[in-house]
Simulated scan of single mutants.
Amino acid sequence: MVTTALSETTDTRGNPYAADCATRRILDRVGDRWTMLVVGILSEGDARFSALRRRIEGVSQKMLTQTLRGLERDGLVRRTVYPEVPVRVEYALTDLGLTLCAPLRALQLWSIEHEDDIAAAQEAYDAVE
């Protein structure tokens, strides 16, 4: 059986290197830094918008809103509005969203494990520039 690198395939389905492939848009969504952080927090349980914003340092209200809407549209996050006064809104991972937890946790652990290596490489690169 002959296999080719994904970047060499001509079929655009399942080929994120092709501009019109849906997997590229999916990878763009799940690889986004705000998405990774939101999913990480929601993996611990439901959260309100204000709690997410407090925990994710540096995220603007606009970016958090856009991220949550995109995740909801993609079926990864469920938004629940409770008819109370004042209205209470909570966000939670869907079953599909929960499947992202293990891969994102692996990336988080990888970044922790290699933080010093990357910092050393950056310093060496910057010293040459």
Rank of each mutant, 00 (worst) to 15 (best):
R73H: 13
A47W: 03
L109K: 09
E57A: 10
V85N: 14
E72I: 03
I56M: 05
R53V: 04
S50W: 04
S43Q: 11
C101L: 13
E57W: 08
A106H: 11
G58R: 05
W110A: 13
R69E: 15
C101A: 14
V89W: 04
L76M: 13
L107Q: 14
R73Q: 14
V59F: 07
L96V: 09
Q66G: 00
R88N: 07
S111H: 13
S60N: 06
L68E: 01
G70S: 12
V85A: 13
L100N: 13
E44T: 09
V59P: 03
F49P: 01
K62P: 02
S43Y: 03
L42D: 01
P103F: 08
P103Q: 04
S50N: 08
Q66A: 13
D95P: 09
T99S: 11
D46W: 08
R53M: 03
P103G: 05
E57D: 15
Q66I: 04
T67A: 03
R78S: 07
R55Q: 12
D95N: 10
V87A: 15
L93P: 06
W110V: 14
L52S: 02
F49S: 02
L104Y: 12
R88D: 12
I112F: 12
G97Q: 08
R54M: 05
R54Y: 05
T65V: 01
E90W: 11
I112Y: 12
L68Y: 05
R53A: 10
G58V: 00
L76F: 13
A102I: 09
V81Y: 07
F49Q: 01
M63T: 14
L107M: 12
L64W: 04
V77Y: 03
L107P: 04
V77D: 07
I56P: 01
R48K: 14
L52T: 01
V89L: 08
E57P: 00
G58F: 03
G70F: 07
A102D: 15
I56K: 00
L96F: 05
R73V: 09
S50I: 12
G97W: 06
T94G: 00
S50E: 13
A51T: 15
T65G: 03
P83W: 07
R79A: 10
L96N: 14
R78K: 13
V89S: 07
S111N: 14
A92P: 02
L109Y: 07
R48S: 09
S43I: 00
R48N: 02
V59T: 13
L71G: 05
V87P: 10
G75D: 05
A92Q: 14
R54W: 01
R55L: 08
S60A: 05
E84D: 11
V85F: 12
G75Y: 08
R79G: 00
I112A: 14
W110K: 08
A102Y: 12
V77C: 05
V81R: 15
C101P: 07
P103V: 09
I56F: 02
R53Q: 11
V59A: 13
G70E: 09
